[in-house]
Structures are given as structure tokens and as C-alpha cells.
Computed example of a mutant assay.
Amino acid sequence: MAHSVELKCLCGGIKGSVEIIPESFFHVHCLCIDCQNFARHLNNEANILDEHGGTELFQTYPAHMKITEGKDKIGCLQLTPKGLYRWHTTCCNMPIANTMRSPNIPFVGLSVKLMNFSSDQQKLKALGPVTVKAFGKYSRGDMPKDTHARFPISGIPKILAFMLKGMLRKRNRPHPFFNDKKPIAEIDSIS
């Protein structure tokens, strides 16, 4: 059964919501170096990364996410010329989400830190357990248990099926980070 979760950054300057629809999301724990570099660039590692340098993400379709307040406080960073767009708050330097460079790709990797849950139990009930722990080779300290050193090959067919389903059902629109094909913020690059 679908339900909505409130989104809010640390300072409350950006608000929105995301629909949690069964079979339309992945709950992942990413330890990749790009997520760590993004947190470092935002100068906010303590509020973003866990003790292993990981980030918890809720990957879903853009059509399921809305920004209702604070669009003027959204910035975007691209770490490499062909890399993801990494959307963040300019008010409290928190990650919002990752997207592909095109609004035609039905994918948004929302930071779970933005999702407003009253407890860890409520979060677990809404999202279920983390289903993929990836890029453990970049972890700080020992690699956490049940973590893949890279992205597991067994997950690729699931991701491709998810994208195809989203394309066929046009789940890329409306897109919270693009007005038609134009990003809602200027794309900064550090490369």
C-alpha cells in the first residue's frame, strides 16, 4: 500500500514529500568514493556519512517525489564530466538526491536523511531493510558485513527492469529537479 513521507532538510528551508510505493523503490547503502567526496565538498560529513563513510539512499522514480518549498535553495554538483547530478541544499549543505543528467531517465536516489521519520522503527516499517550494500571497498575501516566490494552484478537486471518499467509508465515526469529538460539549478563542477 502506498503512503507519503514528508521530506525536510536540517534547517527546514527545503520541504517536500515522496510516495513510497511497493515494487517502485530500492533501499540501498552506498559506500562509494563519490558519495564520500560529495559529503566532503558540502563540508558536512558528520551529518551525512555513517561511521563507515556510507550513505543511505531511497532509489525511486522522479514522479514519486515533490519539492514543495525552497526550490531556490537547491544547488547541484557534478563530480565528473559524465557523472550523476548531485542535488543538495544551499541552506544547510545536505544532500537531497542523485539523478542522471537527463530528465528522461526515471531515477532519483533520495537521501534517507531528508525523510522525516519519528523513529528507526517507523523508517524500517516504511522502507524495509537495506536491500543492497555496495562499494564496500571504499569503506572507512573494516568493510561492513553483507557489503559487496563493488555493485553486485546480480543487481544489474533488477535495476534495468526498474528503469524500463519507469520509462514505459512515464515515471520520469513530473521531475522535481528539471523544468522540462532544463535543470532547476546551475550545475557546478569540481572536475
Rank of each mutant, 00 (worst) to 15 (best):
D34L: 06
H29G: 02
L79N: 05
L49G: 03
L49I: 05
N47C: 09
H64D: 14
T68F: 08
G75D: 09
D72M: 08
R40V: 13
P62A: 05
L57K: 03
D50H: 01
D72H: 13
L31C: 01
I74G: 04
P81N: 10
N43S: 14
P81A: 10
C32R: 00
P22F: 12
G75Y: 08
E23A: 15
Q59E: 11
L42W: 02
I74R: 00
F38S: 06
G75R: 05
K66C: 02
S24L: 05
F26P: 06
S17G: 08
I21F: 01
K66Y: 02
C30W: 00
T55G: 03
F25N: 03
P62N: 10
G75A: 14
E56W: 06
H27Y: 03
I48E: 02
H64V: 02
I14Q: 01
I14L: 11
M65E: 08
K71S: 11
E19S: 10
P81E: 11
G83H: 01
S24M: 11
I21G: 07
Q78E: 12
R40K: 12
M65R: 00
G75N: 02
T68S: 15
K73V: 11
E45L: 07
L31W: 00
F58C: 09
K15V: 01
I20M: 02
Y61M: 09
D72Q: 15
Y61L: 08
H41V: 13
P81G: 10
L31K: 01
V18N: 09
A63V: 07
T60L: 03
N43F: 09
I21H: 10
C32P: 00
Y61S: 06
E19T: 07
V18I: 13
I33V: 14
N37W: 08
G83F: 05
L84A: 14
L42R: 04
E19R: 13
H29Y: 10
H27V: 06
L77G: 03
T60F: 06
C32G: 01
H29D: 03
P62G: 08
E51C: 11
E69C: 02
S24P: 00
E19M: 12
H29T: 01
A46Y: 05
H41F: 15
H52P: 05
K71P: 03
Q36G: 05
F25A: 07
Q78T: 07
G83R: 00
L79V: 04
G83P: 00
G16K: 04
D34W: 04
Q59K: 09
I74A: 08
G75S: 06
V28E: 11
K66T: 10
L79W: 07
K73H: 15
I33Y: 09
K82S: 11
K71R: 15
K66S: 12
I21A: 10
G54P: 04
T60W: 05
E45D: 09
V28F: 06
L77V: 12
I21L: 13
I21T: 13
G53Q: 04
G16W: 00
L77D: 05
L57I: 06
S24T: 12
T80N: 12
T55E: 09
E56N: 07
A46H: 14
I48F: 04
H29C: 02
L84F: 15
L79P: 00
S24A: 15
A63N: 12
F26N: 09
D34S: 07
D34N: 11
H64E: 12
Q78P: 03
V18Q: 08
I20H: 02
F58L: 13
A39Q: 04
E19N: 13
A39S: 13
N37T: 12
F58W: 06
S17E: 09
G16Y: 00
D34Q: 05
I48C: 01
